[in-house]
Amino acid sequence: MPGLDAAAIHARLAARFGDAVGALEGARRDNASATVAPAALVAVCRFLQTEDALAFDCLSNLSGVDYPKRNVIQVVYNLYSYRHRHPFALKVDAAREDPVVPSVAALWPHAEWQEREVFDLLGVRFEGHPDLRRILMPEDWPGHPLRKDFVEPEEYHGISTSRESLLKA
């Protein structure tokens, strides 16, 4: 089965959710995306997953991006349908001061660790996540290191985090 192209997927989303789904971005089949309002995210994802013609059974990647100039942290959902062999991506903007995004771990169980990673590195809180803890950094780590304004601490448990260069004259 050839699957749907990006415009057709987006048309179905727009018909169902109206203004909650933004315009289609990206010209190619493999970078097509749409921005979704946080409040509508779970409904949109459930629709994408359960609708027979869409059937996005795999959340192949979930990542986050920090945009300080726009004062936004964006969470990106790369979806793929193994049944129809078509991809699509969703983007959700969250306020930088207190980024909160609903969790999709109930729909795709493998989202659980990926959401933990985004929480760990960018500080996005996923509402409804069953176990939102740090996954990579130590539990007592200060801040979220992939934020653009993150400053590396001088030392960690007495270990200095810098080393003098031997090349200095």
Partner: peptide, 19 residues
């Protein structure tokens, strides 16, 4: 020895001799 390629990374200890 010194953190190597990842010396400037936030998560890497710059050499085991610091510990």
């Amino acid at each position: 020895n010194c953190g190597g390629l990842f010396q400037l990374a936030y998560s890497v200890c710059d050499g085991v001799d610091k510990v």
